[in-house]
């Protein structure tokens, strides 16, 4: 399974240029949103979604599924590797985003974000990345790559509405840590539930 993960990361890295450019250009713009973490909760999921989308697009475009399912790897492991890749990609994107953000902050381009806001931001971006990333894989497995666009639009609408949550939580500064914990647990739940259903679908697929 890990080899399959390696393979996905390899594809991601080969196409990472776009993400880097996006990162460098978008982080300074975070200040435009009314609170800084709105930017984080947009940036990280978008980057994750883009990477996953490209990886799956490659697969469908080149019918690589045929080869992948001819290699000595079980369907179970194929799906698990897709999901593991989502998580690792999310981590990579998060680290790079935070580094870029700190970099810009130290250069004085934007303000520093308070620590507890970071935590809230990371937890929200985790939840959204899981919805975006795992959701994308699930949709692609069930409906094919074509339907992803519809999914993407629906997701954008969800993102827009979640930007208002941090605002609410800001008013209740005490509960930021607890809220973050719940959000992370939600994110993990999304991950595992979608993985379970994707495994089910993938088992029945014919190539």
């Amino acid at each position: 399974m890990n080899k399959a993960v390696k393979r996905n990361l390899y594809i991601m890295i080969k196409n990472y240029f776009f993400n880097i450019v996006f990162l460098i250009l978008s982080v300074p713009l975070w200040g435009i949103t009314s609170n800084n973490i709105g930017g984080m909760t947009l940036t990280i999921p978008i980057m994750t979604y883009t990477s996953i989308s490209i990886i799956e697009q490659y697969e469908e475009l080149y019918n690589y599924d045929c080869i992948l399912n001819s290699l000595p790897i079980s369907r179970y492991d194929i799906v698990k590797s897709k999901f593991k890749s989502i998580f690792i990609i999310y981590l990579i994107n998060t680290v790079l985003t935070l580094v870029t953000e700190l970099g810009y902050s130290m250069l004085g381009v934007k303000e520093f974000i308070p620590a507890n806001m970071y935590i809230l931001g990371i937890s929200l971006s985790f939840l959204l990345s899981m919805i975006y990333g795992a959701g994308a894989v699930f949709i692609i497995c069930k409906f094919g790559y074509g339907k992803l666009k519809t999914f993407g639009i629906i997701l954008m609408l969800i993102i827009m509405s979640t930007l208002s949550i941090p605002l609410y939580i800001l008013h209740n500064g005490n509960y930021i840590l607890q809220a973050s914990a719940i959000i992370i647990i939600l994110g993990a739940a999304v991950y595992f539930i979608l993985q379970k259903y994707t495994i089910k679908i993938y088992y029945e697929k014919e190539f």
Partner: peptide
Amino acid sequence: KSRIGFVYDESNYY
């Protein structure tokens, strides 16, 4: 599958 080599008609590579 680890002991089979396959060659398909269509090119399914990147």
